[in-house]
Amino acid sequence: MITIDNLNLYHQKTASNNTAKRKGATQVIFDLSLTINKGEKVAIIGPSGAGKSSLLHHLYQRLQTSAALCSQRQGLVDNLSIFHNIFMGALARHHWLFNLINLMRPFKQDLRNIGLLCQQLELDEPLAKSVDKLSGGQRQRVALARALYQQQDIFLGDEPFSALDPLMASRLLEIILARHKSVIMVVHDRALAMSAFDRVIALDKGRLVLDSKKQSINQQQISKLYQTDAVA
């Protein structure tokens, strides 16, 4: 599905990550190489500041036409409704005129489809409610619903459950895994990463320090990875 060879990423406001290192740039990924195959369910873990989000967004840039992204930034439009924010995930599937009419006066079928999706995600709020009136966990589920509504083969998630309790996170992850052939997700909950995914990738200080099937992972490796984060 995707191969990365000796990837180096830099954060700089005025420079592209594709440029060579420039004065003032901060390197966030160092000489990273990996291959992710179609059909894999991959968790990306690591302490704070390890470069997990940077790697995920680079993958999205490479896979954009076939992947749906659920980002930490969410990108919701606060003064629009739950329906409008979720339907925006389907804009690329329709003609602009269809989208315009549907956003102005939603069609019954789309209202039904989005309503059913919200029920699956346990988002029990009127579809006409504006997202600025929702809690943090509800907003996360709207962002997740929009990503699911894109109906892509690949799902990329950047800690999409950070505002949710572990039980809810587990239920939502089951839905994501069932609806997508391939899943690559930054996961904060190590237990969830180890139990639900086929493969675990770990980053530390921008470097790949672990890439293994979950059955082969030593728990001591994982604990050691997070020791510096706990001290900080």
Rank of each mutant, 00 (worst) to 15 (best):
K133H: 12
S71V: 03
A178C: 08
A90V: 04
P126H: 06
N17C: 05
N99T: 11
D229K: 10
Q64S: 14
P166V: 00
Q221V: 11
L164Y: 00
S16V: 11
N18T: 13
I175G: 07
L32D: 07
H95R: 15
A196G: 09
L173A: 10
L172P: 03
T26F: 01
N99Y: 00
D110H: 13
D198L: 02
F87V: 12
R73G: 07
A193D: 12
S162E: 05
L148E: 07
L55P: 00
A147N: 05
Q64V: 13
S66Y: 03
G46C: 06
Q120K: 14
I222T: 09
I175T: 12
S223M: 11
S53R: 02
M88P: 08
S182R: 13
L164M: 04
L117W: 01
S130A: 14
M104P: 00
A196E: 14
N6M: 08
D153A: 15
A50G: 14
Q119I: 04
S48G: 06
L127S: 09
G136W: 00
I4N: 03
S212E: 13
K41C: 08
Q12L: 10
I36P: 03
I176M: 06
G46S: 07
A196V: 06
R199F: 01
V231F: 04
A147K: 05
Q152P: 04
L97Y: 10
Q61N: 15
A232N: 14
D211T: 13
Q120N: 13
